[in-house]
């Protein structure tokens, strides 16, 4: 018994598009990616139910062509559609809240990770050098954001602002200012 090529291709395309979208920073795109992948999984389960056009449970099994299609996958898909629906609603709320709080819905890096990574060394921390450290770290972003109402604390970390770049800046400043 073979599986429909069209369905298999649809599953593949849905998953591929979903993966691309889920790798984006914007939560809305991630959400669309997740929706696509969930639907890909649903179609995949649908494809296991047998050939299109066969009747589900038919008495003693005598359909028009003597075959019947399996009704169980459709039940499973129904469950999973409901779950995806709730999930989409939740993610939308999350994206909206993120937009409310910071004016965008980008998924951000772990701040504590960056703090640990950009920690120059123990002694400069103990010496209370962190004040300069953060100042240099976030200076340009505060300049870039004149709007006082939006707190400028959490910068969306993009390729230009990665950890290595930050560390380079911090290290340089630190070296200059140490007696």
């Amino acid at each position: 018994m073979s599986i429909s090529l069209v369905l298999a291709a649809v599953v593949g395309v849905l998953f591929a598009c979903g993966v691309v979208l889920i790798l984006e920073r914007s939560l809305t795109r991630v959400l669309i990616g997740i929706a696509l992948m969930s639907n890909g999984a649903n179609v995949l389960i649908l494809a296991t139910g047998g050939r299109a056009g066969d009747a589900p449970i038919v008495g003693d099994g005598a359909g028009a062509n003597g075959r019947m299609s399996d009704p169980l996958p459709q039940v499973m898909i129904l469950t999973s559609i409901v779950i995806t629906f709730a999930l989409t609603a939740f993610l939308l709320a999350l994206a909206y809240r993120s937009w409310q709080l910071q004016g965008h819905d980008e998924v951000q890096d772990d701040v504590e990770d960056r703090r640990v990574a950009s920690r120059p060394d123990e002694e400069s921390l103990d010496a209370g050098a962190d004040a300069e450290l953060e100042h240099t770290d976030f200076d340009d972003d505060e300049d870039a954001d004149p709007n006082e109402d939006v707190p400028p604390v959490q910068v969306p970390v993009t390729a230009e602002h990665d950890v290595v770049g930050d560390r380079g800046v911090v290290g340089a400043e630190d070296g200059e200012e140490r007696p």
Binding site: I34, M37, G40, A41, A47, T48, P73, S80, L87, L91
Partner: peptide, 15 residues
């Protein structure tokens, strides 16, 4: 959610 989708796909394959 990603892990759940993977699980769902795996269940589809198992079925």
């Amino acid at each position: 959610v990603l892990s759940s989708i993977l699980l769902l796909a795996a269940i589809g394959f198992v079925y």
